[in-house]
Design a protein around this nucleic acid. Structure first.
Length: 493
RNA sequence: CGGGGCGUAGCGCAGUCUGGUAGCGCGUCUGCCUUGGGCGCAGAAGGUCGUCGGUUCGAAUCCGGCCGCCCCGACCA
């Protein structure tokens, strides 16, 4: 008799496949979409490429914002806000650079009930270098006005052909830092300082290991002298650019005459930087840690760190449990833990277990009459899905410990995954075999032509040239021409 | 924008080939029951079959246009 036939009569309640997520193995991108939908993070809207960020998703963004904003303030930056609409002529000013943006830009052609004349139209910001420089030009007179260190939290719009929730939407939320400095050295220092901030945020808060490095000529921001990025590996082994920091040189200063008078009384163009991360990070977070049961979020950014589930057969049984649960929640809250008591009477505990796993609550406390009789509760961990029984009094301390441990473990796990899927590749055969297999460290002759061949023939693109990879000369995998050092290639989002 | 797939109840799908009263599972609502891994029973509500047009006595079904979603490319944070 086969296993399928000998279902015992008291078989545990049948699993309903309707309720399960597709697995990452089966279909990674369907899994991703489903996690977002089932965890109630975001919806597609009727405007193609635009999303509705739901409270559960927005709460993650708020946590990210809070942490990043603190880091920006700690490095001397101030927030400001610049307009959504940018005179089209501003973009024309930098046609040479921002021509690259043109296909992605939405233009306002009508306003006030009539068509706007050519030359008086607006674009919806795809990024704000131009309009911010317009202000900087007014703000900067003297070297005494420098540096200017500004950040803005805003929405931007880039028309996308293939939108994907959080990763690539036509409208998205981000922060863009914009700074002016008196020297090239200072601007470079700032560019790298903010890249470090992003690295620290990604690793210490998102528990997502990243590679810091420099973008190639063809991958850099239009208008920048140099672009640096942090690159992360998702669970499908594809690379995701998680943040960028640009050294803009004097390119925008020259377009907008952003000048200062030096100590020597000479007029000089300012040196500038810009840097940003976006709601894309939410997508990165999902694809780095989540599993087939749903969302997994590192405790430092999790909207819900502990959920308390009340169990009991009758209202008489549940009453005292509920009371205890709320007291415990108050203690946890006092200790700085984001906690929720689920005392919804209309849903059973099994349902709630599955629900909070889907939603990514880091820890779950199960509390029933049997536990309380023994002065215990059950504590379940989301990432490892392990359970333990603890004394009621030790709950706060144990939750703190586990949250801290989970934060560390998630990072280590992601790091190990990346290490297992990073390869030095030296031949075309290896490249063929490993093209889908994560980060490939390869020699490349440095020409855009060869870079293009890597992309067209193998689907891999340059991610960045890592700072912490020793650069030793070698031979380009494709052409055999000399290379100055290895660079990260991968299939990328 | 090119290639492929799909659009039927809130969600997942069958029905389309071969035209003839709109179906299933989950969810929702009501009542009872239940609560330590998505409980059970009974009843109910809910759909202009993406949209516009054509063929036909009759279209979810056949034909055409358009829109949207997913996958693969080109583009991108």
């Amino acid at each position: 008799m086969s296993d399928a036939q000998k279902q015992p009569q008291n078989a545990p309640k049948k699993q309903n496949d309707n309720l399960k997520l597709p697995t990452r193995e089966q279909d990674f991108s369907k899994w991703y979409i489903e996690v977002i939908s089932r965890a109630k993070l975001a919806d597609n809207s009727d405007v193609r490429g635009s999303m509705v960020i739901r409270p559960n998703g927005y709460a993650i963004w708020e946590n990210m914002q809070r942490v990043l904003d603190g880091m920006f303030k700690d490095t001397g930056h101030q927030n400001a806000y610049f307009p959504l609409l940018i005179p089209e002529s501003y973009l024309a000013k930098e046609a040479k650079h921002v021509a690259d943006f043109a296909p992605q830009v939405a233009v306002v052609t009508h306003a006030g009930g009539k068509a706007l004349p050519e030359g008086e139209r607006y674009v919806i910001r795809p990024t704000s270098e131009t309009i911010i420089n317009r202000s900087f030009t007014n703000w900067v007179q003297s070297y005494r006005d420098l540096p200017i260190l500004i950040n803005q939290w805003a929405n931007v719009m880039r028309w996308e052909m293939r939108p994907r929730l959080f990763l690539r939407t036509t409208e998205f939320l981000w922060q863009e830092g914009h700074t002016c400095h008196a020297s090239e050295a200072e601007a470079t220092e700032e560019t790298l300082r903010m890249l470090d901030v992003y690295e620290r945020f990604a690793e210490d808060y998102m528990a997502m290991p990243v590679i810091k490095g420099q973008k190639t000529e063809s991958e850099k921001f239009p208008g920048a002298v140099n672009t640096y990025s942090i690159e992360a590996m998702m669970q499908d082994k594809k690379a995701l650019q998680a943040g960028t920091s640009h050294m803009l040189g004097q390119n925008f200063a020259k377009m907008f005459d952003t000048m200062y008078q030096s100590k020597e009384g000479k007029k000089e163009y300012v040196w500038q930087t810009s840097w940003g991360v976006s709601t894309r990070l939410i997508g990165a977070l999902i694809m780095t840690h989540s599993d087939d049961a749903g969302l997994v979020v590192p405790p430092k950014l999790a909207p819900l760190q502990v959920v308390i589930i009340i169990i009991g057969k009758t209202p008489e049984e549940r009453g005292p449990v509920r009371e205890k649960a709320h007291a415990m929640a108050a203690d946890l809250k006092k200790a700085g833990v984001r906690v929720l008591v689920d005392d919804d009477e209309t849903k059973g505990p099994g349902f709630k277990y599955a629900e909070y796993e889907l939603r990514g609550a880091c820890l779950r406390v199960d509390m029933g009459p049997k536990d309380l009789a023994k002065n215990e509760v059950t504590l379940a961990r989301r990432d490892t899905r392990s359970k333990e029984t603890i004394q009621v009094e030790s709950t706060v301390a144990r939750c703190h410990e586990l949250l801290e441990q989970m934060q560390k473990d998630l990072f280590e796990k992601a790091k190990a995954f990346r290490a297992a899927n990073t390869h030095e590749v030296n031949t075309v055969e290896e490249l063929k075999a490993k093209a889908d297999d994560g980060f490939l460290l390869m020699h490349w002759d440095g020409t855009p032509e060869t870079e293009k061949r890597f992309k067209e023939e193998f689907g891999v693109t340059t991610r960045n040239r890592p700072f912490d990879l020793k650069q030793e000369p070698g031979k380009c995998v494709l052409t055999g021409n000399p290379s100055t050092g290895r660079i990260v290639f991968a299939k990328a989002y």
